[in-house]
Design a protein around this nucleic acid. Structure first.
Length: 597
RNA sequence: GGCCCUGUGGCGCAGUUUGGUUAGCGCGCUUCCCUGUCAAGGAAGAGGUCGCGGGUUCAAGUCCCGUCAGGGUCGCCA
């Protein structure tokens, strides 16, 4: 690798004692200046590191250097000298040397900064996004983006080693039949018609399996017009899109689990990656963790204790589904702890959160609902939860579709507070056995997740079972409570697909009309196949230990899906609209901000 | 679309609960001092219609109403 040019003989992270007494040229940004009056220290920064440049008052450059604002881009020529004993900076790779500058040339001037690049001062995110190029110079974000590149490079290597071939699939494509909102692109050649940006290359990768390529992968851009979250960027994201022919569910796991394990171990920086990944059935995940993306770092689980309160006289629990969350080690937790857990549950929509604490005798309990429990209920509750002295038990009662959700954040936070939480590991799991159908508002079966998944049991299950009892060959891989990916063994049999859609209320004619391309391909010799698509941004977010996905994306949109730096989206010019045969009709809400006189 | 939090010099924050003299602090910026710092140190200084509009009051950064903006979250994300 040769990085030298007129502008530099070395990078700012390169010089060591062995280059001492040689003349070098460096270019970079003026990171920081320490002016001692009689001696001036400059930190020069580039992508590779920092080098200390020294200027003395007898130098003709002294005044120039004193006047240069931070973040000015300069080229310097100087002599590398070893630092005196005691002046070595052990925190800096280049800390054993410094450069005595003899020439300086300003390559790029810098105006007053909106925020400081040096250091780790907090800054509002909208300002950071407006000046993203400055933000990206800062150490933390810069490092995240470099890490992202290293992770993606390693993913390519690992996938190639496993026999996968990398593809590119269209960006201008057809609207997705199901799912999130599409981004549409108007067609100039076909007035009134639109392309859609792909929400995922789902159909293309299946078609590639039918084309005989056997193992496909792509670092695939995906576009969804949905609202953002801390772990979900609005508009666009990347996924490691994978598809394999002649496989069953365990064969997909057998490839992806080693890839994720190897990737995470390499970049884990001391954190452990326990294997094998546990397989948790969807229904069990809801019961034990209150969510289908459990954070296994929290070492406590919920229990269904509806039976304990089957004949209770306590009105809040009577006739309800009751879930218990036993949390050991609560003996010393103050009342405030329990109150805070209750507010967590309330944020999820719970009306309240009951709790009791087992006293040192291991038998009696105190707490918000202690006086409402009969002796029999108390004993049954302790037995059902395995609670012993000092265990706090949180209790939520209500509709089965809601109670789990209320306790989910309590489970994680209570574990964190009581030390039953493993901060230093990546805890993966496979969530499996998703239901194929669920009942909609009118009580009719509807696809609960992916309509193109193969039902477990195939045609026989579809024709003989109650739809809500049918499971799909569909799975998620979850790490530390973050859903990295969904995946499935696909339905490659047209007859089974038509029957599956029929159960969800779609007549064959409609399926033929909407998914004709896919059905046609299935009729010309489709291999059994399946795949998965872990989110690249979320992987980087986990490995960079960032709570927000925008910290691992160079140029993310803000929550309103705007690019504050480039000014997108923006109104189209009249010429654009004319070429595309479009007229803009603004909603009332968009015009009221600018009332005409 | 709903809910929660936030909005005070260039940047980050305190002050708002309980209205009351000149709105504080840190960083940055300007000027000066300083020959070994690496978050350099010291002295002085500039910089604010407290997001915007309306209201209550003798008096509003502080209370009330509305509105805008940013973040989080629910819906949504097959």
């Amino acid at each position: 690798m040769n990085l030298t040019s007129r502008y530099r003989t070395h990078t700012c992270g390169q010089l060591r004692l062995e280059q001492a007494h040689s003349t070098v040229t460096l270019s970079g940004w003026l990171h920081n200046r320490r002016d001692h009056g009689g001696v001036l220290f400059i930190d020069l920064r580039d992508n590779y590191g920092l080098t200390q440049v020294v200027v003395r008052p007898e130098s003709p450059l002294f005044q120039t250097w004193q006047d240069l604002p931070r973040e000015t881009v300069v080229r310097i020529v100087g002599e590398v000298v070893p630092r005196a004993q005691g002046n070595v900076n052990p925190n800096l790779p280049t800390g054993e040397i410094e450069v005595i500058a003899s020439q300086v040339e300003v390559l790029g001037e810098c105006e007053q900064l909106p925020f400081q690049v040096a250091g780790n001062e907090k800054t509002g995110e909208d300002l950071r996004l407006t000046y993203r190029f400055l933000d990206l110079r800062r150490e933390g974000l810069h490092r995240n983006i470099v890490l992202r590149a290293a992770i993606i490079r390693r993913l390519r290597e690992l996938m190639t080693q496993h026999g996968f071939t990398e593809f590119q699939t269209p960006i201008l494509s057809a609207p997705s039949p199901e799912g999130a909102r599409d981004f549409l692109v108007p067609s100039r050649l076909h007035p009134g018609s639109f392309y859609a940006l792909p929400q995922a290359p789902q159909q293309f990768k299946q078609l590639l399996m039918m084309s005989g390529f056997d193992r496909y992968f792509q670092i695939a851009p995906c576009f969804r017009d949905e609202d953002s979250r801390a772990d979900r960027s609005p508009g666009e994201f990347y996924q490691l899109d994978v598809e394999m022919s002649f496989v069953e569910q365990e064969d997909v796991f057998g490839v992806i689990e080693p890839v994720l394990t190897e990737l995470f171990t390499q970049f884990a920086q001391g954190r452990s990656v326990p294997t094998p990944f546990p397989r948790i059935a969807y229904r069990d995940a809801l019961t034990a963790y209150g969510t289908d993306k459990p954070d296994l770092r929290a070492d406590v689980t919920m229990r269904d204790v509806t039976q304990v309160f089957a004949s209770t006289t306590f009105r809040a629990f009577a006739g309800q589904h009751v879930r218990a969350l036993p949390v050991p080690g609560c003996a010393d937790q103050p009342r405030k702890f329990f109150d805070q857990m209750e507010s967590l549950a309330k944020e999820q929509g719970a009306k309240g959160l009951a709790w009791v604490k087992v006293e040192p005798d291991g038998v009696s309990v105190t707490g918000s609902v202690a006086k409402f429990l009969s002796d029999a209920e108390r004993e049954a509750l302790l037995a059902a939860t395995g609670a012993t002295a000092g265990t706090g038990i949180f209790l939520a009662a209500g509709d089965p579709s809601e109670v789990n959700t209320w306790l989910a954040p309590v489970r994680v936070e209570a574990a964190r507070r009581t030390g039953a939480f493993d901060e230093n590991s990546f805890r993966f799991c496979w969530v499996v056995d998703f239901p194929m159908y669920e009942l909609d508002d009118e009580g009719k079966p509807a696809f609960s997740h992916n309509p193109f998944s193969m039902p477990q049991g195939g045609m026989e299950a579809l024709t003989s079972k109650d739809p809500v009892e049918i499971l799909a060959w569909q799975y998620d891989v979850v790490c530390n409570g973050i859903e990295l990916s969904s995946g499935a063994i696909r339905n490659h049999r047209p007859d089974i697909m038509l029957t599956a859609f029929q159960i969800a209320g779609y007549p064959a004619t409609e399926v033929e009309q909407r998914f004709g391309g896919m059905l046609r391909a299935l009729r010309f010799g489709a291999p059994p196949h399946g795949g998965i698509a872990p989110g690249v941004d979320r992987i980087v977010m986990l490995l960079a230990d960032q709570p927000n996905i925008r910290e691992v994306i160079a140029f993310p949109l803000n929550q309103q899906a705007q690019d504050l730096l480039m000014g997108a989206p923006a109104p189209a010019t009249d010429r654009h609209l004319q070429e595309l045969h479009l007229q803009v009709k603004l909603p009332a809400s968009a015009t009221k901000k600018d009332p005409s006189p």
